[in-house]
Computed example of a mutant assay.
Amino acid sequence: MGAIGRGILFSEMTPPEALEHTFNDWYDTEHIPVRMGAPGFRSAQRYRDGTTRNYLAVYEMDGPEALKTPEYGVIKNSPSDLTRDILGAVSGFTRYVGRTIAEAGPGGDVLLDAPVLYAVFFAVPEDRCAAFDAWYDQDHVPLLLSDPRWLGVRRFDVVDGAPEKYNRLALHYLSDRGVMESDARRRARETPWRAALAAEPWFKGHYVIFDRLGARQMAKAA
């Protein structure tokens, strides 16, 4: 079984400064490993915002259904004392569950090794999703990928999430942060197609960028 799945869990947390070391140790040695034993989980990668203490974990799953198994229910509803204490102390918590709707770039697990992850969220009206998806896949992504440092893009239908009601998430896999200032990105943001969509009142993206942190953890062998 490969590392990449057809669904993801995107979860951010910001620990208090005094608990940061404990938080990181707990995440690497308890929080992720326990989930890697649940059916439907394939792998997990941690990231950190380079300018803050905001941490991200992206879990690769067979699909969102992995979060509805009895095994995951036990994990979710029977936390250890340490887990309960840390989750009670963190801030900036987000939790978004996505199902893959499009991929561009190299196939397979190689994309997941990118050093930088750029996440883009949108809340798109249901009657505009088709137009938004067409623009992203046919206009926006091809221009971004014209720079080889823009390694690939995966897009998701957000089927559940908090605290915001986003329904579209794009994960952009980058070789370095410098590509954010590239001509390719500038061109991708200046097309007539994008300008037409950007004139609509709902077109307000939420953008976050992270650096990969540590090694990818894989699901436990059955």
Results as ranks from 00 to 15, higher is better:
residue 122 F to K: 01
residue 116 V to I: 15
residue 29 T to V: 07
residue 212 R to I: 04
residue 69 T to P: 03
residue 197 L to Q: 02
residue 220 K to F: 07
residue 189 R to M: 14
residue 69 T to G: 05
residue 152 G to Q: 11
residue 91 S to Q: 13
residue 162 A to T: 13
residue 112 L to S: 03
residue 148 P to V: 05
residue 127 D to A: 03
residue 152 G to P: 08
residue 222 A to W: 10
residue 144 L to S: 07
residue 40 G to A: 08
residue 27 Y to P: 05
residue 46 R to C: 10
residue 107 G to P: 02
residue 146 S to D: 12
residue 41 F to H: 06
residue 37 G to H: 08
residue 214 G to R: 08
residue 210 F to G: 10
residue 211 D to V: 03
residue 138 Q to W: 01
residue 176 D to F: 02
residue 24 N to Y: 04
residue 176 D to K: 01
residue 209 I to H: 06
residue 207 Y to N: 12
residue 126 E to M: 06
residue 33 P to C: 10
residue 109 D to N: 08
residue 33 P to V: 08
residue 27 Y to R: 11
residue 5 G to K: 05
residue 46 R to M: 11
residue 189 R to N: 12
residue 35 R to W: 04
residue 97 V to K: 02
residue 188 A to R: 10
residue 96 Y to D: 11
residue 28 D to M: 10
residue 2 G to Y: 06
residue 63 G to R: 03
residue 165 K to D: 12
residue 209 I to D: 08
residue 147 D to R: 09
residue 115 P to R: 08
residue 166 Y to F: 13
residue 110 V to I: 13
residue 162 A to N: 05
residue 110 V to N: 03
residue 53 R to D: 14
residue 183 D to N: 10
residue 131 A to P: 05
residue 91 S to R: 14
residue 17 E to R: 11
residue 195 A to F: 00
residue 205 G to S: 15
residue 70 P to V: 00
residue 69 T to K: 06
residue 35 R to A: 06
residue 59 Y to K: 07
residue 136 Y to N: 13
residue 2 G to V: 08
residue 108 G to R: 07
residue 40 G to R: 12
residue 96 Y to W: 07
residue 132 F to L: 11
residue 51 T to S: 15
residue 47 Y to M: 13
residue 149 R to Q: 13
residue 85 D to S: 12
residue 100 T to V: 15
residue 173 Y to E: 12
residue 204 K to T: 15
residue 68 K to R: 10
residue 17 E to N: 09
residue 174 L to P: 01
residue 180 M to V: 13
residue 41 F to S: 05
residue 5 G to M: 09
residue 206 H to G: 00
residue 127 D to I: 05
residue 121 F to C: 00
residue 171 L to T: 01
residue 87 L to R: 13
residue 142 P to L: 06
residue 161 G to Q: 04
residue 151 L to S: 04
residue 196 A to S: 12
residue 138 Q to R: 15
residue 5 G to F: 02
residue 58 V to E: 04
residue 158 V to F: 02
residue 149 R to Y: 02
residue 100 T to S: 14
residue 182 S to V: 04
residue 190 E to L: 05
residue 77 N to G: 12
residue 100 T to W: 06
residue 185 R to H: 07
residue 45 Q to I: 09
residue 107 G to R: 14
